[in-house]
């Protein structure tokens, strides 16, 4: 690999109240990766992202993010979380919310600068939601809201974008749009996308890992049924759209 390593996990384990959720995870993410992590619900996908972000402390193992601790390295990460569990009536516009991505750059006690406003404008444009900037965030449709949250993650010009179940609240026609958008973004940054939706993810990403407490990772997207079954702990029927032969490969 000539490309720069941005995230490195070595033998990472984590548990909640004594129940192990991740065990012996080794993972390297490189600067031009487009990695899809799939696995059943409760398989530890979100926890893995939170460990990279320093929001969850691993019980064991070493985590390095841009050559530093997660707390220091996460300023290069754009994060789009799974649930946006906010009050639909929350008094903030799309503009206000996207601008929040700039908080780390602006610093405490200061007003947002001209650069902050320009970056917000660019992110809204890139996500094609500039027309909605004055709209209350809770009043957007699922797809538009998802774009707003990605815009919020993008205003810091991250080098790594972490997306947790980004298509969960997006309807099917919007999904294609959404992946084309990611296709553009990946020119500029590494992307890690977490999903339980095997069929859509596999067309676009170029590496796939399966996660169910343990990580099954092959640095390619040629997935074997045995690996999926090991991850899901049950027989898996492979269904794929697009180019199935790239996903189904005999071992």
């Amino acid at each position: 690999m000539t490309s720069k390593e941005v995230v490195c996990l070595e033998d990472v384990s984590a548990h909640y109240d004594g129940v192990p959720v991740l065990e012996g995870i080794n993972l390297s993410i490189y600067q031009d990766d487009f990695l899809g992590i799939i696995g059943p619900n409760g398989g530890g996908k979100t926890t893995l992202l939170k460990i990279i972000l320093g929001l969850v402390k691993p019980g064991r193992g070493r985590v390095s993010v841009f050559g530093d601790t997660p707390e220091k390295g996460r300023k290069y990460i754009g994060y789009v979380s799974q649930y946006s569990l906010f009050d639909r009536d929350f008094p903030a516009s799309v503009w206000d919310v996207v601008m929040m991505g700039r908080l780390g750059k602006t610093g405490l006690f200061r007003k947002y600068s001209k650069q902050d406003r320009e970056a917000t404008l660019r992110a809204l444009e890139a996500m094609e939601i500039l027309d909605y900037k004055g709209q209350q965030i809770g009043k957007l449709s699922g797809g538009q809201r998802q774009r707003a949250f990605i815009a919020r993650a993008l205003v810091t010009d991250p080098e790594l974008l972490l997306l947790d179940e980004p298509t969960a609240s997006v309807d099917t026609p919007m999904k294609t749009d959404f992946y084309e958008l990611l296709e553009r973004l990946r020119q500029r940054m590494a992307i890690v996308l977490v999903s339980h939706d095997i069929s859509t993810i596999s067309i676009y990403v170029d590496k796939i890992a399966c996660l169910n407490r343990e990580l099954y990772y092959h640095s390619s997207k040629e997935l074997a049924a045995e690996e999926l079954e090991a991850a899901y702990r049950c027989p898996v029927e492979m269904i794929a759209h697009g180019v199935p032969h790239r996903i189904l490969k005999e071992h």
């Binding site: 972000l53 929001l55 996460r74 300023k75 990460i77 994060y79 979380s81 946006s84 906010f86 929350f90 903030a92 206000d96 919310v97 601008m99 929040m100 991505g101 700039r102 908080l103 780390g104 602006t106 405490l108 006690f109 007003k111 947002y112 919020r152 810091t156």
Partner: peptide, 23 residues
């Protein structure tokens, strides 16, 4: 007045605020 934008982000999404470096 001094911490308006930080309090807004704290109220809206603590997790995201943490990630972008808000105390």
């Amino acid at each position: 007045v001094l911490l308006y934008k930080e309090f807004l982000s704290l109220s809206f999404d603590e997790e995201f605020a943490t990630v972008v470096g808000v105390p």
